[in-house]
């Protein structure tokens, strides 16, 4: 199906998510590899039956001690670093399929996560919640970590329309991949369910043949 046809299907779509706009922001560095979803949101916080409040427990066991006090050397507790962009080490979001991890990242206020590699399920969950995962090269990632270390005010610009991320310190720019369907969903704030249901005749036709 062509994208224009697909967009027509979405005329009646419920707009659940905010539209994704170009972001220029400082960023929070997390230079750790294989950050799994149990670290992003530990299992004991999964007892909720709504999507609210997970941002408060993002990285809970790295962020707070046993008494619930902030651990000062964890990056989210360091006022030097802030922004709408999280920059993380290779293989971010591995492990459990819990979408609560994406709700925690979004709930904290991050709109973009940058890494050299993402786990599949987290990537899908992030996109379904208006959080853009941006895959960059290992060297681009290493540069960002080095630059923010020297100057926490370093910014990146993430332009979804043109699929580019710019390191505003060095001026280096990379393009990133996203399929046209998901890109349109993010730019317009659409989600998938109305699209699926707009194909009800095709679903029923499939069922008849099987």
């Amino acid at each position: 199906m062509k994208i224009c046809v697909f967009l027509r299907h979405l005329r009646s779509n419920i707009k659940i998510m905010e539209k994704f706009k170009t972001i220029t922001s400082t960023f929070v560095p997390l230079p750790i590899e294989n950050v799994d979803t149990d670290q992003i949101i530990p299992a004991r916080f999964l007892k909720a039956t709504t999507k609210d409040g997970f941002g408060n427990n993002l990285f809970a066991d790295w962020r707070y001690d046993k008494a619930g006090n902030p651990i000062t050397d964890f990056v989210l507790n360091n006022p030097t670093y802030s922004g709408e962009v999280l920059v993380a080490g290779k293989n971010f979001g591995s492990g459990s399929s819990r979408e609560h991890a994406a709700w925690a990242v979004a709930g904290y206020g991050f709109k973009v996560v940058v890494s050299s590699f993402f786990a599949d399920i987290f990537k899908g969950n992030a996109l379904n919640n208006g959080v853009l995962p941006v895959v960059v090269s290992e060297s681009f990632l290493a540069d960002l970590f080095a630059e923010v270390n020297a100057d926490p005010k370093t910014t990146v610009t993430v332009d979804l329309e043109n699929q580019t991320i710019t390191d505003n310190k060095s001026g280096k720019k990379e393009t990133f991949q996203i399929n046209a369907y998901k890109k349109n969903c993010l730019l317009n704030g659409y989600d998938d369910i109305d699209f699926l249901l707009s194909n009800k005749d095709k679903i029923e036709a499939w069922e008849k043949n099987n």
């Binding site: 994208i3 819990r98 369907y181 998901k182 369910i193 194909n199 679903i203 069922e207």
Partner: peptide, 29 residues
């Protein structure tokens, strides 16, 4: 079932299992 050009496939699912932790927000939806 159908495929979106330069996008995902719409795949029919034969069996769906649900548990208590990852489903309540879906039913609310």
């Amino acid at each position: 079932v159908t495929a979106v050009e330069d996008g995902p496939t719409q795949l029919y699912i034969d069996r769906h299992f649900c548990h208590e932790v990852t489903s309540p927000q879906a039913f609310d939806g």
